[in-house]
Amino acid sequence: HDVTIHAGDKTIHVHGASEEFLRIIEQAKRDGIHEEELLRLIEELVK
């Protein structure tokens, strides 16, 4: 999957995102996670 995530003034493109990655991001959004926290989460996941 190619994913584009908008968080605040940043746009992150993730190529080859796994289903698990997508679920984590969707869950985080539903939980109302702060955008900066979401960015950190994404950066950890894509290392």
Score class of each variant (00 low, 15 high):
A28K: 05
H6R: 12
I12C: 03
G32I: 04
T4C: 09
E36H: 09
L38Q: 01
L45K: 02
V46A: 13
E35S: 15
E19Y: 01
E43H: 10
E36W: 06
E44N: 13
H34Q: 13
R40D: 08
A7M: 15
A7T: 13
E37W: 03
E37H: 08
L22S: 03
L45I: 08
Q27P: 00
H15V: 10
E37T: 07
D31P: 02
L22K: 02
S18N: 13
V3E: 04
K29P: 01
E37M: 07
E44C: 03
L39G: 06
L39K: 08
E37A: 12
A17M: 14
R30K: 09
G16L: 06
L41Y: 06
I12G: 02
L45N: 03
I5C: 02
R40A: 12
K29T: 11
L22Q: 10
V14Y: 01
A17R: 02
D2H: 13
K29I: 13
E35F: 15
A17L: 14
G32S: 04
D9Q: 10
L38D: 00
A17S: 05
G16P: 03
H1K: 14
E36N: 13
A17G: 06
F21R: 02
A17V: 15
E20L: 01
R40N: 11
D2W: 08
V46T: 12
A17H: 04
V46I: 14
H34P: 14
K29Q: 15
A17Q: 06
I12P: 03
L39E: 08
R23P: 04
H34T: 14
V46P: 02
D9W: 00
V46F: 10
K47C: 09
D2K: 11
E43Q: 12
I33R: 07
A17C: 00
A17Y: 04
I25V: 13
A28W: 09
E19M: 03
L41Q: 02
I12T: 05
Q27I: 10
D2P: 13
L45E: 04
I12H: 04
E37V: 09
A7N: 10
A7D: 07
I33G: 03
Q27F: 01
R40C: 04
H6D: 10
L39D: 04
A7H: 11
F21G: 06
I25T: 01
I5A: 04
L39C: 14
K10W: 01
H34L: 15
H13F: 02
L22F: 07
D31A: 14
R30P: 01
D31I: 09
H13A: 05
K10Q: 10
R30H: 14
D2A: 12
V3F: 07
L38Y: 07
E44D: 14
E26V: 06
K47M: 10
V14E: 02
I5Q: 04
I24R: 08
A17D: 03
I25Q: 00
A7G: 07
G8I: 01
R23H: 13
H34I: 13
E26T: 08
T4Q: 08
E35L: 15
L45Q: 05
R40Y: 07
H6G: 10
I25H: 00
G16A: 07
K29D: 05
H1F: 15
G8L: 01
L41P: 00
H6F: 00
T11D: 10
H1V: 15
I42V: 15
E36V: 09
I24H: 06
R23F: 06
H6N: 14
T4A: 06
T11N: 09
V46E: 07
D9S: 15
I5R: 02
G8P: 04
E20W: 01
G8N: 08
E36S: 10
G32Y: 05
T4E: 13
E44L: 12
I24V: 10
I42K: 00
I24P: 01
E26R: 07
T4V: 15
I5V: 09
R40K: 15
I33D: 02
I24L: 13
L38N: 00
D9T: 13
E37N: 09
V46H: 07
V14C: 03
L38W: 09
I5D: 05
D2I: 14
G16E: 07
E43V: 12
I25P: 00
V14M: 09
G32M: 09
I42Y: 06
K29W: 10
R40F: 08
E44A: 12
D9G: 15
K10A: 09
I24Y: 06
L22R: 03
L38I: 08
K29L: 12
I42N: 00
E26W: 00
I24D: 04
I12V: 13
G32T: 03
I33H: 06
A7E: 05
H15Y: 00
T11S: 11
E44G: 12
H6P: 08
E26S: 09
I12K: 02
I12Y: 02
V46D: 04
S18P: 11
I42C: 02
R30C: 05
D31W: 01
R40G: 07
H1M: 14
E19W: 01
I33F: 12
I42M: 09
E19I: 04
R30A: 15
D9M: 05
D2T: 15
Q27G: 05
I5S: 03
H6Y: 00
K47Q: 12
H1P: 10
H6T: 14
H13S: 10
H15P: 07
G16H: 10
T11M: 10
E20V: 01
T4H: 11
L38H: 00
G32C: 01
I12D: 03
E44F: 09
I25M: 09
A28Y: 04
K47T: 13
H6C: 08
R23E: 15
E26A: 13
L22H: 06
K47E: 08
H15M: 06
E44I: 12
K10G: 07
V46Q: 10
H6L: 03
G16S: 07
E26Q: 09
K47Y: 02
D2N: 13
G8D: 07
I24S: 07
E36T: 11
E44T: 13
E26P: 00
V3Y: 03
L39S: 07
H6M: 05
R40M: 11
A7V: 15
I5F: 00
F21A: 14
E36C: 08
K10T: 12
H6K: 14
K10I: 13
I42L: 12
Q27L: 10
E20Y: 01
I33L: 15
E19F: 02
H15T: 09
D2E: 10
F21K: 04
R40V: 10
D2G: 13
I24A: 14
V14S: 02
H15S: 11
D9C: 04
I33T: 08
R40T: 11
R30L: 13
A28T: 03
I24T: 11
K10M: 11
V3Q: 05
E26D: 11
F21H: 12
I25A: 01
I24Q: 10
T11Q: 10
H1W: 08
I25D: 00
L39H: 07
L39F: 09
K47W: 01
E44Q: 14
K29N: 10
R30D: 06
E43L: 14
L45A: 07
E43P: 00
E20T: 01
G32K: 07
V46R: 08
G32A: 07
E43M: 13
L39Y: 06
T4L: 02
D31K: 10
G16N: 13
E37K: 05
S18R: 03
E35R: 08
R23N: 15
I33Q: 08
L22C: 05
Q27M: 09
D2C: 15
I5T: 02
F21P: 01
K47I: 12
T11H: 15
V3A: 07
L22W: 08
Q27A: 13
A17W: 10
H34M: 15
S18C: 02
H1I: 15
Q27D: 12
K47H: 11
I24W: 08
I12Q: 02
L22D: 07
E37Q: 09
D31M: 11
L45D: 01
T4D: 11
V3H: 06
K29C: 06
S18A: 05
E19K: 03
L45M: 13
H15N: 10
E35N: 12
H13T: 13
K29R: 14
G8W: 01
D31F: 02
D2S: 10
H13R: 07
T4G: 03
Q27K: 13
E44H: 13
G8V: 03
H15Q: 11
E20R: 01
L22V: 14
E37F: 05
L41V: 07
A17T: 06
I24M: 12
V46S: 14
F21V: 11
H6Q: 15
A28R: 05
E26C: 06
A28E: 01
H15G: 04
V14W: 05
H15F: 01
I42H: 01
A28C: 07
E44S: 15
V14H: 03
A7Q: 08
E43N: 10
A28N: 02
G8H: 05
E43D: 12
L45V: 08
E19H: 11
E20K: 01
E35T: 15
H15E: 07
G16T: 06
V3P: 03
K47S: 11
E26G: 06
V14F: 08
R40W: 08
L39I: 14
I25G: 00
F21W: 12
E19A: 06
I5P: 03
A28L: 11
A28H: 07
H1N: 13
F21Q: 12
D9K: 09
K47P: 10
R30V: 11
A28P: 00
E20C: 01
E43F: 04
K29S: 12
D9V: 05
E19V: 04
E44Y: 07
H34K: 14
G16I: 07
A7F: 14
Q27R: 10
L38G: 00
L41A: 02
K29H: 11
E44V: 07
H15R: 11
T11I: 13
A7S: 08
H34E: 14
I42Q: 00
V3I: 15
I25K: 00
I33E: 03
K47R: 13
I25Y: 05
A7K: 02
H15W: 00
L41K: 04
G32V: 04
